[in-house]
Structures are given as structure tokens and as C-alpha cells.
Amino acid sequence: MNKEVVLQVKNLKTHFTTSKGTAKAVDGVDFTLHKGETLGIVGESGCGKSITSLSLLRLIPTPPGKIVEGEILLNNKDIVKMKEEELRKVRGNQISMIFQEPMTSLNPIIPVGEQIAETIRLHQRLPRKPAWQKAVDLLEMVGLPSPEKRAKQEPFQLSGGMRQRVMIAMALACTPEVLIADEPTTALDVTIQAQILELMKDLQKQIGMSIIFITHDLGVVSEVCDQVAVMYAGQIVEHRNAKDLFKTPLHPYTQGLLSSLPNIHENQQELQTIEGSVPSPYDYPVGCRFADRCPHAREICRAEAPDLLETNNAETKVRCFMHTEKWEVIEEKEELVCP
């Protein structure tokens, strides 16, 4: 693949220091985002996906959180090292974000049109009137009925779906290169979710931005994403093309996740489950973080931490000894230590 790289994240670590110790919420995340691509970051609650997304724009509240290591390269410039001034020019301009709760994420007492227009005035140096007009145009673009009227309204006067459209309009106001969508449809009903996903796909075609789509919903990922990164305990455990991942998941965690989903298209007797629970971010095990719950775990999995490595297919990365060359030897020599 010789697509242009927009964003490259290298060994990102975001830790939180609390009275209980240090929580390694994001603990060594690497990924590359190409132009026009949609990358899904999936995982269950506490896996670090949201913290990863907030870290990209350095929106982690400090203290207690801090990016302790790593690089976030936007067109080869490191966001982690940027000065405040420089960072503000990236936020909302080159990289913008939409959040899960459109109600609480919009300022309740400022008309939605103004909330969009202020971003335009800030980054594009437009005067009030044209900025307002552009906000109204954007609202029309995201399919808000009677945008002139709606622009003057406050968030509580809009429905949940409309509010998320406003958020999208706001995020796209300066035609960003990267849009980070953190659970953008989780708070919405399915029929409204379908509208919003469709809208995002359309707008991506028009604008050509890259999207990082954070969600726990594997169905949504498979609908909208080209690439998928599965996170577990602060790390990416599998990163591949979406189609392949859903067809033949490689990492035992991904396999477990997919098989615990109830299927809407056929009747099943019993759902597969993943036994045990996620390790505490304050105290990760030395070896593979999934080993305690993994049906394939051997001694080495407890003793050594696997790296996120390319398999024989260069576009597929997985963090598991099962997919390394030495596995055949391990399989013969070592006993299963599964739960």
C-alpha cells in the first residue's frame, strides 16, 4: 500500500496517577492512519480506546492524566511536543472530534449556529456574518431541516439525532484532515444511528478526510471501517483490514469477542463467553495481558509479553505468540495453562 500517511502514533503511553497508584490506561499504542481511510478502534470499557482518542488532541485532564511517552505525528509534526499555540491551530482545524453524548457535548446556553461559527471565525479568520452563513450552510449539509431557524436554537430544542448532526457540522467546519469520532452513535437509537453513519460515509466521500472511529459496537465497525484495531488492557492486540478481521480473527481475544456477540441472522443455542475479567490497569501481568483468560495460553505467555508483529501478510499485525514462527516449537514443548 503506498497511500499517503496522515497520522502516525508511536508507542503512545498515557498514564493516570491517583492515590491508588499509576493506572496505565494507554500503554504503548502504535498505529498508522492513511489518507481517506477509516480506522476503527474497538474494545470493551476500560481498554483505553477513549483515552487514546483524547490523547491524540492532548485533551486528557492533567493532572491526573499525562502522556508519558510516545509520538503523535501529524504530517510528520509531533503533537506531543507542540506548544499550546501550535496545538490550538491543530485542534478543530486539522484534527477535530465528535463525542458520544451530543447533549452534554454541546454548550447548553449558546445557540448551535454560534457554536459552529466561532470555530470558523477562529481558524479561518472570517468575519461574523460570513461565518454565520457558513455555519448555516454546514447545518444544511448535514441534513438538518430548516437550518436557518435551527442555527438560532439552543441544544435542548433539538432531538438527539439533530444534536449529533450539529456536532458533525461543527467538527467538519474547517474541513479537517482527521476526524476522531468517539462512540458517536452509542447514545442514539438504531434508526437514527443508521442515518448518522450514512451521513458520515457520505461526508467522508465529499471531503476526503480520514476517520478514527472509536466504538465498542463491532457491528458499527464492520459497517464503516476499512481498518480495525482491537484494544485490550491499554494495547492494540490486532490491527488489520476489517473484512479479514471479521472473517478470520487471529488474536484469541478478538475471537472471543466476536463469538460472544449474539447473531441477529440465526438462532444459536448458547453464546460463547470469555471467562475471567480484564486485569487492573494499576497492575498488569508480566506476560501477555490476555493470558489468564486465553484458551490457548502456554507457559511462555505468562512469562513473556508478546509484541505487535506483522504476520506473513504485511498489512496484518497481531500481538500473540500463536502467530509467530516459534509457536510450533512451543506447542510441542509446553503444556496448556489455560483457565
Binding site: Q193, S222, I264
Partner: peptide
Amino acid sequence: LLSAIPSIDE
């Protein structure tokens, strides 16, 4: 409603 549900099934 049924058609709106995102599916992982190609």
C-alpha cells in the same frame, strides 16, 4: 428497524 442494525456478517 431490522435493516438498520449494523451487522458484522458480509
